[in-house]
Design a protein around this nucleic acid. Structure first.
Length: 803
DNA sequence: GCTAGGTTAATTTTT
DNA sequence: TTAACCTAGC
């Protein structure tokens, strides 16, 4: 491109001046290079904690300061609103107050909306289209599916929603879904997808996927439009490039085509969203996609100690096909990682609670550690319960990150539906949502009548309802309720048009509709909370000029980042922790099947395992000073006790950087499985046999001595069996059945007469007779029973385990 | 139209 | 084990 040379000289002329600029201060050489390499394609490979955002914002500041680009010529995309907000904030800090808004800085979706509003008609929409959230989307899919007469059990709407999402992630439109997908959803997948898109068009609505897909379609089908943007948006920056999906990739590639000035920032080792369409391949392929691209590695880490970096590096090294980075730091060595095994998940939670209290007292890191500095990162949400229970009992304040977002809550969605209806009475989804909330006596049948009337007349539901009333199709309670609803809605709509203050109107709607009263009537703590949320919603409204503006933004922007000043420990998933850092990080539940997740491995094989490993990498690199990894030998999964094996990732931890708090013998693998000692094993705390809980000598002290005493438990023959055998089979128990030849018919486990077995309810027993999969077993406590084999687990050699 | 009781399924999540 | 969701019965 011609502009190149002029650009370069301009940039160079300004360079000397820029070097002394405030935003350059303290940047290390690679960061500086990333800031100054403005032309062409640049891949900034930024490891965890290497000052990525800093470099990125400095780069923008540099472009603006040197006159390379004006603020409206830079497209800067992020994935989350939080990241976009932070970038704006930091830019403001660098440039002083004169950051004339960067109009093209935002999330993929926010930018997608902006483009789509301008060019809606090119994909058959009106510029006023509404954005459906996941909930609306699902309800719409249900409606569409009902026309296809599929068994809801076998073909759940959720699955269809997931399918459509994944297709949109890959930028497939109904007419471009490849033939290889034809079998999907009972061979009707594409048909249903097409019908769904039709419905969206009639409703003048889009879902989240469309916010990317439509712009891509527009660019592909309208070269003139694309060319305009090539002229306007001369520089592109992308954050978290390893998380982009195919649609986002196409979007970026189309926009970069003209000038090739695209700078992508990311870390292939932190790609953890493959399951929702992210393609690590995008970042791995970057140099092929953009020949001549400069690849700049940010490897100096400013966050973690050498021990932590070494451990993380060793784990991630097991992955194939990485771009490769080696993080280093100038920080002092600090503490080794700590590794400890526990008997079960409850003990693990108890121990973590004790450790946190020790940290607070200052007996772990030499100085007291604030609760805010501590995080517990789990693989799956259900792991949080054990910690919450424990923290509640010991009165340790904690906060859970994740969970339903503010705008996803029922009351907020209901209220929003009222607002939507006031703004556009033709919003059918909003109509359906609240026509009977609060109860107005309009049930399924009444609603069907309205829908039929609307369909026949080809009008929105609101008008259809009026027609149905006029024609006397409604009767009794439904007629009265519907009439009242229509009249109210008409009044509100009139008020919107008359320009009545929107905050006042919103409050009035919630009151007049009886919505507030509905929750007040409940008088439960939960309802109180909902009323609080509604108040908060009204407060949020004040920041907008009108309802339309609010609705426009709320679907994309609103989140529940409630600033919480209180001192609390943080509890969240590993996924949610990406991008965050904490002085002290606990990583519990490192057990094969849980982490790495069995499902991930089953469904995606090596790819799945590698993504899990990246998750481990993300987890470890969240820690600044101390990282504590733990696992449990037994865990209750869906109500059943399962024995667990330590995670294979534990074997990948480098011994030199890990302090093992549990004695050897607890795990096989790389941690020197020293000869286990026999005997005694008192002080076992609590152990479980089937449903039973036996109180032993309860260990309250979390000190090492107590745990050392407990080592004998782990060294027992039963424990060695745990080590030797693979995971528990269905049917539970304490000891897994070794993999033996399958019985014909498949139920699985083969037992021999005389063999010792364990049953959930009946405890230990001896097999008397075997008849196919039916066994006669003499139980020690309850005598002889006839039992199906799959309810039994082998208990050979378990008798001397001190249960 | 509403409620209670049974059935089922159960990583990760942003927009 | 549990929680959400659906069905059947009032």
């Amino acid at each position: 491109m011609k502009q190149g040379s002029g650009l370069a000289s301009r940039a160079m002329a300004a360079a000397g001046e820029a070097r002394s600029a405030r935003y350059m201060a303290g940047l290390n050489p690679p960061q500086r290079e990333a800031v100054e390499t403005l032309e062409g394609a640049v891949l900034m490979l930024a490891g965890a904690g290497t000052g990525k955002t800093r470099a990125l914002t400095a780069r923008i500041a540099h472009m603006l300061a040197t006159g390379t680009a004006r603020s409206n010529e830079i497209l800067a995309v992020t994935f989350t609103n939080k990241a976009a907000r932070e970038m704006k904030l930091r830019l403001g800090g660098l440039l002083g107050e004169q950051v004339e808004g960067m109009p093209w800085l935002g999330t993929f979706h926010a930018i997608g909306v902006k483009l789509l509003r301008r060019h809606a008609e090119l994909v058959g929409l009106k510029p006023s289209f509404t954005i459906l959230d996941t909930d609306d989307q699902l309800r719409l899919i249900k409606q569409v599916l009902s026309a296809f007469n599929l068994d809801e059990k076998r073909w759940p709407p959720r699955a269809m929603a997931g399918l459509i999402d994944s297709w949109k992630n890959r930028a497939w439109r109904p007419d471009t879904v490849p033939a290889s997908e034809a079998h999907a959803f009972d061979n009707r997948g594409t048909e249903i997808y097409a019908a769904y898109q039709e419905r969206l068009k009639t409703l003048n609505a889009v879902d989240f996927g469309d916010l990317l897909l439509h712009p891509v379609t527009i660019f592909q089908a309208n070269p003139d439009v694309l060319a305009q943007y090539h002229r306007w948006l001369r520089f592109i920056l992308v954050d978290e490039y390893q998380d982009t999906n195919v649609a986002q990739y196409l979007f970026l590639r189309l926009l970069a085509q003209g000038h090739g000035n695209i700078c992508c920032v990311g870390d292939d080792d932190q790609s953890i969203y493959g399951w929702r369409g992210a393609e690590v391949g995008n970042i791995l392929r970057f140099e092929r996609d953009f020949p001549g691209a400069a690849v700049i590695r940010l490897e100096q880490n400013y966050r973690s100690t050498p021990h932590i970096l070494a451990a993380a590096g060793a784990v991630i090294a097991a992955n194939q096909g990485r771009l490769g980075k080696t993080l280093w730091t100038e920080l002092p060595e600090g503490e080794k990682l700590r590794l400890i095994g526990h008997w079960d998940g409850e003990e693990e939670a108890r121990w973590v609670g004790d450790e946190i209290e020790a940290l607070e007292r200052g007996t772990r890191l030499g100085e007291p550690v604030s609760r805010n500095a501590i995080a517990i990162l789990v693989r799956a949400g259900h792991q949080m319960r054990a910690f919450e229970d424990r923290f509640l009992t010991i009165g340790l304040p904690y906060r859970v990150i994740g969970g339903p977002r503010f705008y996803e809550r029922q009351e907020i969605r209901d209220a929003m539906a009222y607002f939507r209806l006031a703004v556009s009475p033709a919003d059918d989804l909003a109509f359906e949502r609240v026509v009977n909330v609060p109860r107005r006596g309009i049930g399924d049948k009444a609603l069907q009548t309205v829908q039929r009337a609307a369909r026949e007349a080809g009008v929105p539901l609101m008008q259809g309802a009026a027609l149905a009333l006029r024609d006397g199709l409604m009767k009794g309670k439904a007629a009265g309720g519907l009439r009242g609803f229509i009249e109210e809605a008409a009044r509100w709509h009139e008020a919107v048009r008359a320009g009545v203050n929107h905050v006042e109107l919103a409050g009035r709607m919630l009151d007049e509709s009886g919505y507030t009263a509905m929750w007040q009537a409940e008088r439960t703590p939960e309802a109180e909370g909902r009323l609080e949320n509604l108040k908060e919603l009204l407060k949020a409204l004040e920041e907008f000029d009108n309802l339309q503006g609010f609705l426009e933004h709320v679907a994309l922007i609103m989140d529940n980042e409630s600033e919480d000043a209180a001192e609390k420990v943080t509890l969240m998933t590993l996924h949610a922790a990406k991008g965050l850092e904490f002085p002290v990080v606990f990583l519990p539940g490192w057990e094969d099947g849980l982490f790495p997740s069995q499902r991930s491995m089953d469904e995606n094989g090596l790819k799945g395992l590698e993504e899990e490993r990246r998750l481990a990498y993300v987890g470890i690199t969240r820690a600044e000073r101390l990282c504590v990894i733990s696992f449990a030998a037994n865990r209750r999964v869906f109500g059943q006790w399962q024995s667990q094996l330590p995670s294979r990732f534990i074997d990948e931890l480098p011994e030199d950087h890990v302090e093992v708090l549990t004695p050897p013998g607890l795990y096989g693998g790389g941690y020197g499985a020293a000869a286990p000692r026999h005997g005694g094993a008192r002080g076992a705390g609590r152990t479980h046999v089937g449903d039973e809980v036996i109180e032993g000598e309860v260990v309250t002290d979390s000190g090492l001595e107590a745990r050392a005493a407990r080592a004998d438990v782990y060294a027992s023959p039963g424990w060695r069996r745990l080590q030797a055998h693979s995971r528990q089979v269905a049917g539970a128990g304490v000891v897994p059945r070794p993999a033996t030849p399958q019985a014909p018919g498949g139920a699985g486990v083969v037992f021999q007469p005389g063999e010792r077995v364990m049953h959930q309810r009946f405890g230990l027993g001896t097999v008397h007779a075997v008849d196919g999969d039916k066994l006669a077993v003499a139980f020690d406590r309850v005598g002889e029973k006839h039992i199906i084999a799959r309810f039994l687990t082998s208990a050979e050699g378990i008798d001397d385990v001190p249960f």
